[in-house]
């Protein structure tokens, strides 16, 4: 049974904004599916829909085998432990007045399962000394706060974690520590991750599969090694090329896109990428390219690449 199945997800807002436009993806149990894209692509909206902190306008969300798309908050309550969201900014996702211990403990208290030893065990598992439990969020470093957020998400023994840019606001050296922690947790607990990010390099060390989003649609999806080293879709290629190289010796010819990602309120017709696409043809403005499976496991939405 897959940890997460998203089918034809649509999320629109009054006023014509389409954040997610018919997205389908599957996260297998125990694997990391990394969803990458730049600002405005809808990945955060999708993340919130996946854990039902937002309600989709259309489509289905099946978590751990249960269809949770239209469930009420009351019906969701007993299921919530099974899937949790780790937020990007650990400062804002922790209640400023709650100590670290209480922040993690609250997860257990809500479901009547609180035991102080359980909280200590969770803190230790994420690499924190339980004695830090007495501290308030503003007395902890960014990395420590994010570990608290992860511990809190693990408290109810989920099978799926959705992580929305979990290391983006951390120092570079701390990012590596937290990413390593996430990988260890995944291996140890068999967790499935839907990992939302814009930083491809971070994704590389964690992901089994990668999906690339642009303006609400998935444009490419496949095994991580494949997508990151041999991208098929012109946008993916530009994303990979845009990573500043660590060594001047590796400088190469690269696609540098013109312009900016347009706002989701003004989505271009046809292929949403066509205005910035280096290989766009006139027909791209009219036809919406379907996500086609080129080889098993690899889908690309561009007939000309």
């Amino acid at each position: 049974m897959s940890a997460l199945v998203i089918e034809n997800l649509v999320r629109t807002y009054d006023g014509g904004l389409t954040a997610v436009d018919n997205v389908s993806l599957t996260v297998a149990a125990g694997e990391t599916y990394a969803l990458v894209g730049e600002s405005g692509c809808g990945k955060s909206t999708l993340a919130r829909c996946a854990v039902r902190l937002d309600t989709p306008t259309g489509g289905r969300i099946v978590v751990n085998g249960r269809d949770v798309t239209r469930l009420s908050r009351r019906a969701l309550r007993p299921l919530r432990g099974g899937f949790q969201l780790v937020f990007q900014d650990p400062m804002s996702s922790l209640e400023p007045r709650l100590s670290a211990h209480d922040a993690v403990g609250e997860a257990l208290r809500i479901h009547g399962r609180y035991r102080p030893e359980a909280v200590d065990a969770l803190l230790t598992e994420v690499g924190l000394d339980p004695s830090l439990g007495a501290r308030l969020p503003h007395q902890l470093s960014g990395g420590q706060r994010q570990r608290i957020g992860i511990a809190r998400a693990l408290a109810l023994e989920p099978q799926l974690l959705v992580l929305d840019e979990p290391v983006a606001s951390l120092d570079v050296s701390v990012q590596a520590q937290v990413v390593n922690l996430l990988r260890e947790l995944q291996d140890r607990r068999g967790l499935a991750y839907l990992f939302i990010a814009h930083d491809l390099a971070v994704v590389a060390s964690l992901a089994h599969r990668v999906g690339v989003m642009y303006l609400g649609r998935i444009v490419e999806e496949g095994p991580a090694a494949q997508v990151l080293t041999d991208p098929q879709h012109p946008y993916t290629r530009a994303l990979v090329d845009a990573i500043p190289v660590e060594s001047p010796a590796l400088r190469r010819e690269r696609t540098v896109l013109k312009g900016e990602p347009p706002s989701p309120v003004e989505r271009p017709g046809g292929c949403v990428f066509h205005p910035r696409c280096p290989i766009a043809r006139p027909s791209c403005a009219q036809e919406v390219p379907a996500l086609e499976e080129r080889v098993p496991g690899l889908r690309v939405a561009c007939p000309y690449s």
């Binding site: 902190l53 969701l76 309550r77 969201l85 937020f87 996702s93 609250e106 809500i110």
Partner: peptide, 14 residues
């Protein structure tokens, strides 16, 4: 709409 309240909702808090 704050993240920490969303987090509590996500944990199943009433």
């Amino acid at each position: 709409g704050a993240d920490h309240v969303q987090a509590a909702i996500g944990l199943g808090a009433s």
